[in-house]
Design a protein around this nucleic acid. Sequence first.
DNA 1: CTGTTAGCGCCTTCAA
DNA 2: TTGAAGGCGCTAACAG
Lengths: 325, 325
Amino acid sequence: MPNIKKIAEMAGVSISTVSRVLNNHPYVNEQKRKEILSIIEKLNYSQNSNAVHLVRGKTNVIGVVLPFVNHQYYSAIIEGISRMAAKHHYNIMLCQTGYSPEKEIEVLDMLKMKKLDGVIICSTINGWQELEKYVKFGPIVTCEDTVSSYMSSVYIDHYKTFALGMEYLIEHGHRRIGYCVGRKNSINSLNRKQAYLDALSSIQVMPKEEWGFVDCFTVEDGTRVVQSLLQMKERPTALLVSCNHIAAGIVKAAPKSGLSIPGDLTIIGCDDQQIAEILEITTIAHSSVDVGAGAFTLLHDHITKKNKETKKIELFPKLTKRLTT
Amino acid sequence: MPNIKKIAEMAGVSISTVSRVLNNHPYVNEQKRKEILSIIEKLNYSQNSNAVHLVRGKTNVIGVVLPFVNHQYYSAIIEGISRMAAKHHYNIMLCQTGYSPEKEIEVLDMLKMKKLDGVIICSTINGWQELEKYVKFGPIVTCEDTVSSYMSSVYIDHYKTFALGMEYLIEHGHRRIGYCVGRKNSINSLNRKQAYLDALSSIQVMPKEEWGFVDCFTVEDGTRVVQSLLQMKERPTALLVSCNHIAAGIVKAAPKSGLSIPGDLTIIGCDDQQIAEILEITTIAHSSVDVGAGAFTLLHDHITKKNKETKKIELFPKLTKRLTT
DNA sequence: CTGTTAGCGCCTTCAA
DNA sequence: TTGAAGGCGCTAACAG
């Protein structure tokens, strides 16, 4: 592999001059520039990124941290990030954590080690207090609501999401309402639960422990919920579900067990996965692609120092009524 | 930011010694090792990856090239790659090309520029002859069938896939058969078409041009297919569809237009997207996660020189009968 | 067991 | 408009 020195030798100039044409600097004799370019061409030379990164102190690579790549909520976010990143000539290091705290830290360490110019955290397991320790190594943007004043974020207030859903259900006469969320104690789950509890309390209804389902992530989890429902003496008439894939599982499994939807069971899902459209599931959604695009923009502004202060961008989901309500 | 020199100074040793403890080399006084470690801890130091990459000549990063991230066929492949990569301490650079030839070349250039240790191409737009030019810069593995003897691949022979589907349809009495594929002239599409034509010719049926749909990628394309079908004087009784998302669009749209499935129209999809399971679509599938995992393994073996010769791994999909046939 | 030294490939003053 | 020289931060012989 040729290097800059070799090119310089062949062109009979110094490596500085070669460097100048490589980086489109002015003050290079047009004749020499042409000559150098042709040699570069002939030798099929290109810069060694690692050397460039080392000397420049940046890589034009950002890290994207998420629990599961093969999950449409996240792949939509990646889509948004990808589009914007391509526009600004940034590359994406994709890091699937499976919600392992260590894996998340590993990525943050890559920031510290200058392998990454910045990081977007789609969903954290360590929590923002931990993330905060790394902002001194480079900008971090989250796609979740964080209280931290050191990190920008694009987020949805899931208290509002669930509040919106509960309002709809209550307005439509439901009193026996249940819900499904993912990780039991994540910020988002806790917010959702609070909205649920507050709404019930506003109509003087006591929440029923067994109607709150946790650890729901996939279609299979949805069918599991239906199984549980069938065992109950008293069943909810409606379910507010934090993700459409779970909702899809419920919607497919319920009729097979004799529960008609929305007759016996009303379902409201969340997010903008296409499955909701296909199965005609009522959903409360925002654009996940926009989340990703927004996160990249915030991050990019920080990297390029366009803005120093952190920024919080809230996205407001809205309810689309379809056939499960 | 502290560097190795600073650590050496503070510990009163040379940078070599620090480097040794950093890389777990033997022959370091246990006392000094402890001391150095504690200073590293105190200063919250860590190596500069770019310097390490430069001097080692590798980055432990591989590139993954695909047209669309937000498409379940590809996100499943990424899942497979991610899992294996994590196991071997490799990172993934994700590159969405949108089938732009230039974007694909950009990634290959990153291989040339030592930013990447290897590349996995999930679907190429430039074609294998072009890719081949880059193997001298590092190993390239594809998830498509390539004739190249310079690149390993994990692939499905889509001639066989469609042949399998046609056989099923013909056995079940269909004679008026159509098909849907993605890019009109991609290798895979051409292979599929050939299988289709060969099957028809084997039963002495003349193919009908308008029953071959191209540029089908999404659910919406599926509904578009149904629109076209409705305009036809003579309609096919069955459709072999290269991707379940298109099939999903057809399955949802058809009944709304009075075409019952499988009564008026039999549908066979392809690949293992969950949507097929949910909508009970008969499909011809292999595990896409396995494709990714296999591709990484091949690539890793090349990077670590475990095997020099290229290897071709063929995966055989099988037909799962459900409710659309 | 430890330090010196020579790179890895490139960018960027500085002086000419 | 050009070149020399000094890093960027680290690894790896080599010599002690």
